[in-house]
Design a protein around this nucleic acid. Structure first.
Lengths: 223, 223
DNA sequence: GACTTTAGTCACACAAAGTGACTAATTCGC
DNA sequence: GCGAATTAGTCACTTTGTGTGACTAAAGTC
């Protein structure tokens, strides 16, 4: 956390950095400088002239030593909820990191999302906002791909979707939809994972081939 | 616009108020106090202790004399773009208003979205963000319904969807999807609009009857 | 070499969306 | 009054997409 330059902290930028560990999502927290047994999201006060996006990126880099594979603002939070800083408003960013390449620096560590310690109220709201954003933009943005390493098997991809959607998917349907979407490219590599037939490796490759949706979707029916 | 209390304006809350006029969306702008031929989005500096949502609602009420039928934060904007205030960051809200009940106060007026005057750069970005949010949450939230009066015909509803989606829809498909979604309730009223058979009036009525989605959606394929 | 395990595909049933043609109820022109 | 025009509302058929179980393929285990 960069120290705020003066008493009049204007606002902060906070990062909700997410990865997938095993069968659950995890969030990166940092130990408080003063009360060492308390945790909070990584945050900082932007330097004058720094853009919001840049401040979020630098917050993430300070925590992980590298940039997330995906970063997106999820909104401004304030509304009376307490924050480690004195800022009235904090701008939250969601960042995605493949677990394989994510080595937190000292005093940062991953917490399973179902097992978070108590957080400052404003940051608790950010975590909720982040999971909501994750769910709702699963089919608008390559969320699952950004949580996986650059190359992956289709089973891994399916497991990631199952994790994010919170339900099991049928293999044949999943692959059919994936093929129709023209989103992955097979590599000339296979990976043998102990037992069973080796799986082909793929990589994410967004492409041409758009096809507009057909009907209207009244999806807000299904909350 | 409420005057900012001191020179150190922390941040502002800006409102992108949208309505549908005829066959196009329109946005509410306010004439600048000093340069009367320039326009900007309604904004204000929140009073200390006021929540963001409350500040946005009060900005809208000051402009229209009433609350929008839908209001949602669309994010924080800063990133070096200029703003009428000296604040480094502004939090933008999207508000929806049915045109029938929207009477702007003095020095406010509606501008067709295709024919906006030049705006402060930060607010220009907000308008773009608002239209993006409109598009992307069309099937997550009752956007179209919030732009229509409380009671409407199915043809009006379809026209609103066509306007928001920017394409024509087939009547039978539209109504089939609407019925499946269980979102409107027929009233015992009909409205005769000049020529042709009178149309039954409906009202928005979200209900039970959920049905989970079936497959995965790789919709980000189609930008 | 039979059995287990994981990868990958196929085919069929069923559900949803695209589409044009139909019926229904009103106004307009004459 | 009556037929044409206009808008509302529905139907039936076709095409496309999804759910599902059973199948083949290639590896390890015993």
């Amino acid at each position: 956390m960069r120290e705020r330059p003066s008493k009049t902290a204007l606002y902060t930028v906070d990062a909700v950095l997410v990865t997938a560990i095993g069968n659950e999502l995890a969030i990166l927290l940092v130990r408080n400088a003063s009360e060492r047994e308390r945790w909070s999201l990584p945050w900082q006060t932007p330097q004058t002239g720094e853009t919001l996006d840049a401040a979020a990126a630098s917050t993430a880099e300070e925590a992980l030593g590298e940039s997330p594979t995906w970063m997106e603002q999820i909104g401004a939070f304030g509304d009376g909820k307490r924050h480690p800083s004195e800022a009235e408003v904090s701008v939250a960013y969601l960042g995605l990191v493949p677990h394989e390449t994510a080595a937190p620096r000292a005093s940062y560590s991953w917490f399973q999302i179902g097992d978070l310690p108590s957080l400052p109220p404003r940051q608790r709201a950010m975590v909720e906002g982040a999971t909501k954003t994750l769910q709702s933009s699963l089919d608008q943005a390559p969320i699952a791909f950004r949580l996986l390493p650059a190359t992956f098997t289709l089973s891994e991809l399916q497991q990631m979707y199952e994790l994010l959607m919170g339900k099991r998917l049928h293999k044949a349907s999943f692959r059919r939809a994936l093929q129709a979407a023209w989103l992955v490219e097979p590599m000339d590599e296979w990976r043998s994972e102990g037992r069973g037939r080796p799986a082909q490796l793929f990589r994410y490759l967004p492409k041409k081939k758009r096809r507009p949706h057909r009907g209207v979707r009244f999806d807000f029916l299904y909350p």
